[in-house]
Structures are given as structure tokens and as C-alpha cells.
Nucleic acid binder design. Structure first.
Length: 343
DNA sequence: CGACTCATCCGCCATC
DNA sequence: CAGATGGCGGATGAGT
């Protein structure tokens, strides 16, 4: 049987947080067809073969058997109870079968761990909640983790960063499959932006950064952020820690989930975003201040991470149009922590 | 664009 | 032995 592209199976797991679980149910499970949204239907399936107890002890019942996910054209694992807890083999088999039948498989937040365990991310790019990036890359070295972005679209497989980024991924999927108008209709009803620019690193402030990585490497990361306009080579960084180049690469990867250069590049794009928002410096000047040689080298990186050009970004987020949120973001000093913006 | 150069980065293996 | 370290080399990819 061909999977139905308008049927969305959501894998509900016992002990999984309710917010993340609710994200795909809210995007796909509410009929907004009168507002121009596509008429999806949602089928919650049980990851464990029983009712699920979620955050606050709320019971989620009337879940369908896992196997019925085979009918769905989209299968979403919205989160998982604990990244340390291996998913049941049966769940992994079902996900692989759905994939083989042509369904789009989505792992939001910790759901990326489940997709990776099923082998669906091997050799592909993916993301997950930044707190677990180190663990993820350690556990799944065959997956190319990008802990900096909100979501990664690999065609038949999509993964997203933590919590609210699941919304971005779901809306992206709607936009991709059904068009921008359909996605906008849903976003408008949910009162969220149809497309958020910038990656999840914008929600990691320097304090959190040191929290995750105390010690000499944490200091080094802080130093890198403070000296983005300098030319930084990996050999230099290794020398600063008094370890060999190879060991540095390994330690850096274990902590951040990425390689030094990719991490640095991302910080530079974020710095450029901030400068575009808060200053009127010419793009070339912005590029140099963020550590790029000129505007030409900034552009492709910026576009790849943010999705729009630096100039478009300034026109959208910079200048006099200061929403309260933008003003809060634009302040000097460390960026706001994730909680303030997501809650 | 395409060709070229060079740093990066990651698997592999020896060593501590 | 177990685990961390470091050197080597080749594929990759960024910059010119």
C-alpha cells in the first residue's frame, strides 16, 4: 500500500516530554483547512505498545499500534524520554520499513537519536538539541552533526534542534511539500513566524557555553568568540591548550559536536548577523569585523546558514523596525539565553 | 565557472 | 589491559 502523504504518524513515547510531543500534533493535527492549510490528519502511535505518561503525569491514551505507521506518508518521532535510553528494536524496524516504503521520516529534538539508532542518518547531515550534541556525535560518529542549525533537511529524512525548533522543522516540511502559502496559513494560526532565520547557536549564550564546557577548552571557546576578527588556525588553538593537533581535534569534537573550523565559521556568521542587526556598517566592514576577509567570502556562508543574503537580513531585522524581541536581542553583551525566548 | 593550492579533519595505528 | 595521546595520510572542501 502506498503511504498516504496527508497522513502523519506521530510516535508517542512513555515518559517523553509533552511539549515536544505536542509540536507535530499541533501543526498537523488541527484542521485549519478553512484558513488555507492542507488537510492533514494525525495518527498518534505508541512507541511502547501502551499508554504514555507524559510531563506532569498526564496520560496519553488511545494510541494506535506502532505498525499502523506504515500507512503514513510522514512519520515523526517528536522526542525521546532520554538520550541514554535505547529505543526498542521494534520501533527502529518500523521506522526503517516506513522509510523503505517512501515515507518522510522526521526526528525532532531527541527524536534524532532514535533516527540515528535506526541507521537512517548514516552518512547524512543531522542536528539535535545542542545540550546533547557532544553525546550524539560520540554515539553516532557516522552522522555528520551540525549542532548550529535549527533543522536539517536531507530530503526523505529531517531532523531538528531542541524543543521549539521542532515547529520550524514541521513548518519547513509543510512549506516544502505544500508550498509557502500553506505553511504561512498554519504559522499565522499558531502565531509563530513562518520562517525563523538563524541557528540554534543564537540561543546559546556565552554563560551556557561555559556551563557545558568548563575548564581550559571552555576558556578557549570564549577566547575564540572574543577574537573572531583575528585569523585563527587550528594549530594555533592546539598550541594554546598544549596538546597535539590530533588530540585537540578529538577533544573539541567531543565537547561541541563539531570540528573547530565549522564551529568558528558558525560563530562568525552569528557575529555578522548581530552586526547587521545593530549597526549600519557597510557589509564589507561587517564581514571583516566578523573575521571574513571581505563581503564576498561572507556571502555564501551567510546564505547557507541563514537562508537569505546579508542585505536581505539587514532589511528584515535591522534598522529602525525594532520589535521588542529584536531590541532585546540587539542589546550589547551576551545574547539572551534560550529559555527567555522560547518560553 | 574551473583549476589550483592548501588547511582541515577523521580513520587508522603505534605508543604511552 | 583499557584508555588517552599523537603521528600519518588521504579525502574533503574552502579560498584564490
Amino acid at each position: 500500500m502506498r503511504p498516504n502523504p496527508y497522513l502523519v504518524a506521530v510516535v508517542v513515547a512513555d515518559q517523553a516530554p509533552i511539549f515536544e510531543t505536542a509540536v507535530p500534533l499541533s501543526v498537523f493535527g488541527v484542521d485549519r483547512s478553512h484558513a488555507g492549510a492542507p488537510a492533514y490528519s494525525v495518527m498518534p502511535v505508541s512507541a511502547d505498545g501502551r499508554d504514555a505518561i507524559s510531563t506532569g503525569g498526564i496520560a496519553l491514551g488511545r494510541l494506535r499500534p506502532l505498525e499502523e505507521a506504515a500507512e503514513a506518508g510522514i512519520v515523526i518521532v517528536p522526542t525521546w524520554r532520554d538520550p541514554q535510553d535505547p529505543p526498542p528494536e521494534r520501533l527502529l524496524q518500523v521506522l526503517r520499513a516506513c522509510y523503505d516504503e517512501g515515507a518522510i521520516v522526521v526526528g525532532l529534538c531527541l527524536g534524532a537519536f532514535v533516527l540515528a539508532a535506526a541507521g537512517l542518518l548514516d552518512g547524512r547531515r543531522a542536528t539535535t538539541h545542542w545540550v546533547w550534541a557532544g553525546l550524539f556525535s560520540q554515539r553516532f560518529p557516522q552522522v555528520r552533526l551540525d549542532p548550529a542549525v535549527l533543522y536539517v533537511d536531507e530530503g526523505q529524512v529531517i531532523t531538528s534542534a531542541g524543543t521549539a525548533a521542532g515547529l520550524d522543522a514541521c513548518l519547513h516540511l509543510v512549506r516544502r511539500e505544500r508550498g509557502a502559502r500553506a505553511a504561512a496559513a498554519i504559522a499565522r494560526r499558531m502565531v509563530v513566524p513562518p520562517h525563523r532565520a538563524g541557528g540554534q547557536a543564537q540561543f546559546i549564550d556565552s554563560m551556557e557555553l561555559n556551563h557545558v564546557t568548563q575548564g581550559p577548552l571552555g576558556d578557549l571557546l570564549a577566547w575564540m568568540v572574543a577574537n573572531l576578527d583575528q585569523e585563527i588556525t587550528v594549530d594555533q588553538l592546539a598550541a594554546r591548550l598544549n596538546v597535539s593537533r590530533r588530540t585537540f581535534d578529538r577533544q573539541f569534537h567531543a565537547v561541541t559536536g563539531t570540528s573547530p573550523l565549522r564551529w568558528l565559521l558558525h560563530q562568525r556568521v552569528v557575529a555578522a548577523q548581530q552586526l547587521l542587526e545593530t549597526t549600519d556598517l557597510p557589509i564589507d566592514e561587517v564581514a571583516r569585523n566578523a573575521g571574513f576577509t571581505n563581503a564576498v567570502s561572507l556571502r555564501p556562508h551567510f546564505h547557507r546558514k541563514v537562508g537569505i543574503s546579508p542585505l536581505q537580513y539587514r532589511q528584515t531585522f535591522g534598522g529602525r523596525d525594532r520589535t521588542p524581541a529584536a531590541a532585546a536581542n540587539a542589546g550589547a553583551g551576551p545574547r539572551r539565553p534560550a529559555a527567555d525566548l522560547i518560553k
